[in-house]
Amino acid sequence: MKQKMNILALTSFLLTGLLIQQVTAQDGAALYKTCAACHTIGGGKTVGPDLKGITKRRTNDWLVQFIQSSGKLIKSGDPDAVAVFKQFNNIPMPDNALTVDQVNKILAHIDGGAGGAAIDPKQAALQHKVDSMLKTNSPLDILAGKELFNGERRLENGGASCTSCHNATYNNSGKGGILAKDLTKAYSRLGGFAGIKGIIASAPFPSMLATYKNHPVTEIENAQIQLFLKSADEQNPAQPVVAKTWFLHAAMVVGLVILLAITGLWFRRKRLSVNHAILKRQEKYSK
C-alpha cells in the first residue's frame, strides 16, 4: 500500500511539473501578443525595435524596468532608455501592468524565438492571402479600407469604426474624430504595414484595447485598413492636414453674428404694456 502511494505521489509530481512547464511556454506566447503590436522577433523594426537577441543586449534588470514602465525609466534619465526613445520618433512605449515573473516569461518566449510552434495550414493560407493583398495594393481594397475606416461599412465582428476616434484625411476630406491620434500619416510614422497591423490586432492603448476586446478586427479587414492608411499617407506629403480650420473660423464668425443678432433683437423686443403692472395688480386682488 505504501509503495502504491509513493508511485502515485511521484507520478502526480512529474505530471504537475510537465504541466507547469507547458503553462509557462503558453503564458509567454500569450503575453507577448500585446508586444507584437509594435515589435517583431527577427522581423525587423517597426514601431519599436526588433526584439531578437534583446536579452543578450540588455540586462534583465533594465528590461524588466523598461517593460513595466518605460516612461519612468526615461524620466529618470537612463541614457539607454532615452536613446531608444529618441531613435523611435519619441513614441513612448505604453506602461504594462506586468509582474516581474510575467516579464520574465515574455523574455523567455522571445529567447525561444518565433519558430518552434507548429504551423496551422489554415492560418498559413490566410497569411498568404493577406500578404498577396498587401503586395497587390488594389484600389478596391483601398476603397474597402476607406469604407471600413469611415464606418461606411460595418466591421465584420461589429467593432467600432476607426473614424469614431481617429481622423485620416483622404481626398482633402477628413471628418474623423479627434479623441485619438490623427492617422493620416500613420503609415510612415508607424514604420509600414507591420506597425499598423500590430496596433489594430492588439492595441497597446487601454481604450482601444477595450473597444476591440470582444470585437476583433479580422486579418482581411486589418489589411484593407493598412492599405487605406498607406494610400492616405502617400496622398498627404506633409504632416496631417487639418483642413477644417477655415471652417472653424467661419463657424465662429457666423456664430458671433447670430449671437449679436439675437442680443440685438432681445434688447429691441416689444416692451410690456404700460398698464401691465396695473392690470397685474388688479388681477391679483380680484381673485
Binding site: R268, K270, R271, S273, V274, N275, H276, L279
Partner: peptide, 9 residues
C-alpha cells in the same frame, strides 16, 4: 417697432 402702443396701453 417696439415703441408702438399696444391695445393694453
Amino acid at each position: 417697432n417696439p415703441d408702438m402702443p399696444v391695445m393694453d396701453d
